[in-house]
Design a binder for these strands. Structure first.
Lengths: 198, 198, 198, 198
DNA sequence: GATGAATGAGCGTTCATTCAT
DNA sequence: CATGAATGAACGCTCATTCAT
C-alpha cells in the first residue's frame, strides 16, 4: 500500500466509520461490510486502503492513539517540572477520553476483545505512550522530586494501570459519572506514591 | 443442572482442560471439541456439566477467582492492621498468579477477548474482590493509617489497576521476569500513595 | 424382542407416553428422554421394549390403528348392505378421531413428518384399513348398489382421501368445529359419487 | 432481500437444485451443502438469495405451486361451465404432477416431513388453490349443475383429498402406473358426487 | 480507482443409543 | 429387569476476502 493512502479522504472515512460501528455494535458485530456501508463505500474498496480487517483496527488505534499521545506530549513540553507534567498527563489522559466517548468504548472495551496477535501490535503503538510516562518519572527522579529508588517501569505500570482502570470503570458505567473531576485526586494519590516523603 | 455436578470429578476435569487449552491455543481457537479431548471426555459430555460454551468460561472464572479471592480473604483475617493487609493483598495477588501461569494467561489476556455480555458476568465475579480491596482501604482510613480524605473507590481503582497492569505486563513478557519480587516495591508505592504523610 | 413384551404394562405405558409427548411437543421435539420421563421409566428401559425410536412410532401406529380398524370392522359386520357399511365407516372414522384428539394430532400431522422409510412401514399398517374399504366398495358393486364399472382402488382413494383431508383440516383448525356432524353430508357426497344413478 | 433476486438466474438454479436433491435424497438428507453443490454454487451463495434453509423450501413451494395454480386458473377461464372446469381441474392436477415426478415426490412426500411451523406457511400457499376449487364448486351450484345444498368446504375437501390421495399413491408406487389415465374416472366419481341426480 | 457478487472454511450443540452397575 | 451417565456423528450459517467488470 502506498504511503499516500493514509492522507486520502477515504482512509479517514473508513477509520471513523470503524470507530462508530464498533462503538455501536461491539467488536464482534463490526463486520467489514457494516463498516463499508457506514463509510459509504463498497466492501471491496476497504481493501484498497487496508490490507485486511486487522489492519483497519491497528490503523485506527495508531491514528487515534497517535493524536492522543502527541497532544499530551505537546502539552508536557510547556511544563517546568515533572510534578506539573504528571498533573497534566493525568488530566489530559482523562479529559481526552471523556471528550471522545466512542473512542473510549473502542479502546477500553471493544479492541481488547481482539486476538492475542492483534493486541501485541496494539502494544507496539502504546510503547510511545509508555516512553512519555517513563520520561516523566525519570525526570522527576532526576529533579529530586520523586524517590530516586523508584523503579521506573513499575511506577509507569502504576501510572498507566491506575488511569486505565479508572477510564475502563467509567466506560463500563456508560459515562454516568464525571471522569475529568477525578483527575485532581488521582494525581495526588499517584504523586504521593512517587514523591519523596517531605 | 443439579448443584452436585459442581462437586463431581468431571466438572473440574473440564474446567482445568479449558484453562490448559485456552492458555495454549488462545481464546478464539479453544473449540469445545478441543477442550473435551484435553479433558478425556466426549464432546457431548461437556453439555452434561455445562449449559453451553460460555457457561464453561464463566464457571472457570468463578471457580478460579473464587479460590483466588477466598485465599486472600483468609490470609487478611490474620493481619492486625490495614497496612499489613495491603502488603499481603499485593503479595498474594502477584504470587497466586505467578504460581499459576496458565490461569494468568487466561484471566489477563484470553478471557478479556470474550463478548461484552460475558465480560459483564465476569465483572460480577470480580465484585467480591473489589469489596475486599475497598474494605482494606476503609479500614486503613478508620485506623488513621491512610489519609481520611482518600476516595475509597478511586484508591481501589489505583490498587487494582496497578496490580492488573503489572501482571498483564508479566504475562505479555511470557513470565520472563520474576513477578513476586515486585511485590515489596509495589506495596511501598501504593502505601505511600495512600498513607498519611508522616 | 419376545412377543410377550407387547402385553407388559410398561410397553403400553411407553406408547401412551409417546402419544402424549408427540401431541404436546410435536414430532421433532419428542426426544426419547422426554418420552421416558413421561412414562416414568429410565431412558435405557425404552430399549428393553423397543428396538429403537422408529420402533416406538411404528408400534404406536400399529396398536392405535389396529384398535381403530378393528372397531370399525366389528361394527360393519352387523350391517346388512354396503350402503349402510359406507355410512358407518364414515361415521366411525370421524367419531373415533374426534374422541381422541391427541391421537388425531399424532396420526394426521406429527407422524407424517417422519422419514420416508418410516412412512412406508406406516402404510403397511394402513393396508388393513384399505382392505376394509375396498371390501365395502366391492360389496356395493356386487349388491348392485354401486356402479359396476367403478374402479375399486380409485373409489377407495376417494373415500380415504376425503376422510383424511377432512380430519386433517379439523386437526389444523385445532378441533374448533364439530367433526362428527360432518359425517352425514360426507356420506351422502361419497354415496352419490359411488352409486348408480337412480 | 431485494425483490429482483427472485428473477435472477441463481435463484431458480438453487430452487431447482433443491427439488432434485430432496427428490433424490429425501427431506432429512437434503443438506444445504448438497443443494449448493447440485446448483453449482458455493454454500454461502445460497444465503445471498435465501434467508435460511426453511426459506428455500417455502420459496420452492411458493414458486412451483404458484405456477401449478396459475396454469390451472388460466385454463379454467376458457371453460363455459363448472362441469367443464371440474374436468379440467382434475385433468390438470394429475397431468402437471405426472409431468414433474421430482416435484411430485417433493410436494407429496418430502415437504410434508417439515416442522409444523413450515407446514403452516405451506398451507398459506395452498389457500390460493383452495379458493380456485371452492369457486368452481360455488359456480356449479349457481349454475344449477351441482346440488345447491352441497357444503362448499366439504366438497372442496373431497375434491382435494381425493386428488391428493391419488397422486400420493402414485408417487409411493414410484410412478409405476399411468396417472393421467385416471382423470376421466376420477372426474366422473367427483361429478356424480356433486351433481344433481337427474 | 471502485464495485459487490461470490466464495468456502470453520464450529457449537443435539440426541438416539449403549453398557457398566 | 432397570438405570442414567456417557458417547460422538452430523450440519446450518457467518463473514473476511477476492476478482471480474
Amino acid at each position: 500500500m502506498a504511503v499516500d493512502k493514509r492522507n486520502s479522504e477515504k482512509y479517514h472515512l473508513i477509520i471513523d466509520a470503524a470507530v462508530t460501528v464498533i462503538a455501536k455494535h461491539g467488536y464482534h458485530h463490526a463486520q467489514v461490510s457494516k463498516i463499508a456501508k457506514e463509510a459509504g463505500v463498497a466492501d471491496g474498496t476497504i481493501y484498497l486502503y487496508f490490507k485486511n480487517k486487522e489492519d483497519i483496527l491497528i490503523s485506527l488505534f495508531r491514528l487515534k492513539m497517535g493524536t492522543f499521545i502527541t497532544t499530551i506530549e505537546k502539552r508536557l513540553e510547556t511544563c517546568f517540572d515533572a510534578k506539573e507534567k504528571l498533573r497534566f498527563l493525568v488530566e489530559m489522559h482523562l479529559s481526552q477520553l471523556a471528550e471522545q466517548p466512542d473512542l473510549a468504548v473502542v479502546t477500553q472495551l471493544e479492541l481488547r476483545q481482539s486476538a492475542r496477535e492483534l493486541r501485541l501490535k496494539i502494544n507496539d503503538v502504546l510503547k510511545g505512550y509508555v516512553q512519555v510516562m517513563e520520561n516523566v518519572i525519570d525526570e522527576g527522579k532526576a529533579e529530586g522530586i520523586f524517590q530516586e529508588q523508584l523503579d521506573t517501569k513499575l511506577a509507569r505500570q502504576m501510572l498507566f494501570g491506575t488511569l486505565d482502570e479508572i477510564v475502563t470503570n467509567w466506560v463500563m458505567k456508560e459515562g454516568k459519572f464525571d471522569l475529568e473531576s477525578l483527575s485532581q485526586e488521582t494525581y495526588h494519590m499517584l504523586l504521593t506514591g512517587f514523591q519523596k516523603s517531605s
